[in-house]
């Protein structure tokens, strides 16, 4: 395997590729986006006038599994980036495909959860909990969906031989995004699920 030294197209002041810097700034911006959604959720926490309330309906064991799936997908992506960096494109495709499958599994859990909640009588129109819960987790799910499409794009590009050593950055960027979306979920899982249930019926109302 020949390691191709990849220099950026144009030297930059910081030494960081323009596209990578763009991704970091975008993620900083996205922090404020999710921060505002989480702030809205917290402000309205315990202010719903009718049920179902968080502790009635949130299922910690099931969501723990889906959280584990998403965390595992981040690990898979680390493996795929490492494979791509050392030039092992077959291994890259295997791992990136696994990442996309795990991401899709997480989305499957979310679809199942949403359907279950609607069945239990919680929709975005029911109460403030429903409104804020579906908006926050829905936008997170949209981010995961974009991520899965992105990962599959990389997979197919690699299949067609268009993702060589000069495109290592493209894999790196997708990784930054994927890990970020993963981290956001850890915050959401803590704030909505763990806190919401731990505080119980007295506060979580």
């Amino acid at each position: 395997m020949s390691q191709v030294a990849h220099a950026p197209e144009h030297p930059t002041v910081t030494g960081i590729d323009n596209r990578k810097l763009l991704m970091w700034v975008f993620l900083a911006s996205d922090c404020l986006f999710f921060g505002s959604l989480i702030a809205t959720y917290l402000i309205y926490f315990g202010r719903s006038v009718v049920g179902p309330y968080p502790h009635d309906i949130l299922d910690i064991p099931v969501t723990s599994v889906s959280t584990f799936v998403l965390l595992l997908s981040s690990f898979m992506f680390v493996l795929s980036l490492a494979a791509h960096t050392r030039g092992d494109y077959k291994a890259f495709r295997v791992w990136v495909f696994c990442t996309a499958v795990l991401g899709s599994t997480f989305l499957g859990f979310q679809v199942f959860e949403f359907q279950h909640f609607v069945h239990e009588g919680l929709t975005p129109r029911t109460n403030l909990f429903g409104t804020t819960f579906f908006t926050l987790t829905g936008f997170h799910g949209a981010h995961v969906t974009i991520g899965v499409v992105w990962l599959l794009t990389l997979f197919f590009l690699s299949l067609r031989g268009k993702l060589g050593a000069d495109k290592n950055l493209a894999v790196d960027l997708a990784g930054l995004y994927w890990h970020f979306v993963d981290i956001v979920w850890i915050v959401i899982f803590t704030v909505i699920y763990l806190t919401g249930v731990a505080l119980g019926p007295g506060v979580g109302k």
Binding site: V25, F26, A28, S29, D30, L32, F33, G35, S36, L37, T40, P124, R125, N127, L128, G130, T131, T132, T135
Partner: peptide, 24 residues
């Protein structure tokens, strides 16, 4: 890049209230 995400969220909440009957 830091302030516009905040109004984006506010506007999304407003649009969701009006278009889909959310309760924000």
């Amino acid at each position: 890049v830091t302030a516009f995400p905040v109004i984006t969220v506010a506007l999304i909440e407003l649009v969701f209230d009006r278009a889909f009957g959310f309760n924000f």
